[in-house]
């Protein structure tokens, strides 16, 4: 990857990118409320399967397909995989996060002068993230690494506020999960069409409970 592409990638996944990704905890806040996540170890235990089973079987294979579709300017394929992605989002809050971040990201890309088709206003975050990576010449491994890293960093930051978790513990979890990100990408890029998607029941239920959690820091 050349320097410009790398800089664009760092820019796109910076927590300071003004799209508000930090406002979502994806069920983690409920898992803390339930007492399931209360330490560095249990945070790692909570996140690992989400990465290795859910993201590796959904987000990564879809990033790959969307990346290829954008490269070919094949809007019909983009729209097809967009529908598959939304149908796989388990709860209202996970779906809304995908869509709301999509809309903000769409506006941002527009203000950065990235040409988008008119349909793109309806596209969700992951779909537009693939487009941005194609636009800046970021390769698919970079695209997938950044997507998962941004998710992980965001989850760990959410844990710092809710568990709460100290900075050193947070850094340890980030570091411990780096090899898992690599495995998830390797697995995800090889997933066949018919094996896309994986539902984790407790994760889906925690996210659904979060929609009505009485006291919460994060959006639903």
């Amino acid at each position: 990857m050349n320097t410009q592409a790398l800089l664009s990638l760092l820019h796109l996944t910076s927590p300071s990118l003004p799209i508000g990704a930090f406002a979502y905890s994806q069920g983690l806040e409920s898992a803390v409320e339930m007492g399931w996540v209360n330490s560095e170890e249990s945070l790692h235990e909570w996140l690992s399967p989400i990465l290795s089973h859910a993201q590796a079987n959904l987000d990564i294979p879809l990033l790959k397909r969307l990346y290829t579709a954008w490269q070919a300017d094949d809007l019909a394929q983009v729209q097809y995989w967009q529908q598959v992605l939304l149908a796989n989002r388990e709860t209202r809050e996970l779906l809304q996060e995908e869509q709301k971040l999509g809309l903000t990201f769409y506006r941002l890309l527009g203000s950065l002068g990235i040409g988008l088709p008119v349909q793109a206003r309806e596209f969700s975050y992951l779909v537009l993230f693939a487009k941005a990576c194609v636009h800046y010449g970021i390769d698919i491994h970079g695209c997938c690494s950044a997507w998962l890293w941004a998710w992980l960093e965001n989850q760990v930051a959410a844990a710092c506020k809710t568990v709460p978790l100290g900075q050193t513990s947070a850094q340890k979890v980030l570091l411990a999960m780096m090899p898992e990100i690599e495995q998830a990408i390797e697995h995800g890029l090889a997933v066949h069409d018919e094996n896309i998607g994986m539902t984790l029941p407790a994760f889906a239920m925690a996210s659904a409970w979060h929609e009505t959690q009485y006291s919460r820091l994060f959006r639903s």
Partner: peptide, 8 residues
């Protein structure tokens, strides 16, 4: 796994 089947 706690985010999987959580022993159920």
């Amino acid at each position: 796994a706690i985010s999987g089947f959580n022993g159920n």
